[in-house]
């Protein structure tokens, strides 16, 4: 009915909130533009970093978050990486020239 009304009287076809979408997309875009790192590149970086971290600790892959955020006068890479527990691993030999501290 409303559609019919709008059709006759030339009202807006979609009652929009598209400006909110525009604003959100823009904020995101401008931060990424500033550091010249696209969201897709951030994703790749995230995957690489997590790969390294996973060598040492077990992490909750789904719960991790990586994003660029605008701080007062800089842009920060903010990440949250939930750690489950330390992975059991064989004790690595101490680097050459370093005497292990007595137990």
């Amino acid at each position: 009915m409303r559609d019919l009304f709008n059709r006759f009287f030339g009202g807006p076809k979609t009652v929009g909130k598209s400006k909110e979408e525009a604003k959100q997309r823009l904020k995101f875009l401008l931060i990424h533009d500033q550091v010249d790192l696209t969201p897709a590149q951030l994703d790749t970086m995230k995957a690489e970093i997590l790969e390294v971290i996973a060598k040492y600790v077990e992490i909750d892959q789904d719960g991790t978050e990586f994003k660029l955020e605008k701080e007062e006068d800089c842009i920060a890479l903010v990440s949250s990486i939930p750690v489950r527990r330390v992975v059991e691993r064989p004790a690595s030999p101490p680097p050459a020239g370093v005497t292990p501290a007595p137990a």
Binding site: R25, F28, L29, T38, P39, A40, Q41, T44
Partner: peptide
């Protein structure tokens, strides 16, 4: 890219 809404997928 933004007109097409594909900006998040650029590598």
């Amino acid at each position: 890219d933004v007109i097409l809404g594909l900006e998040n997928r650029i590598v």
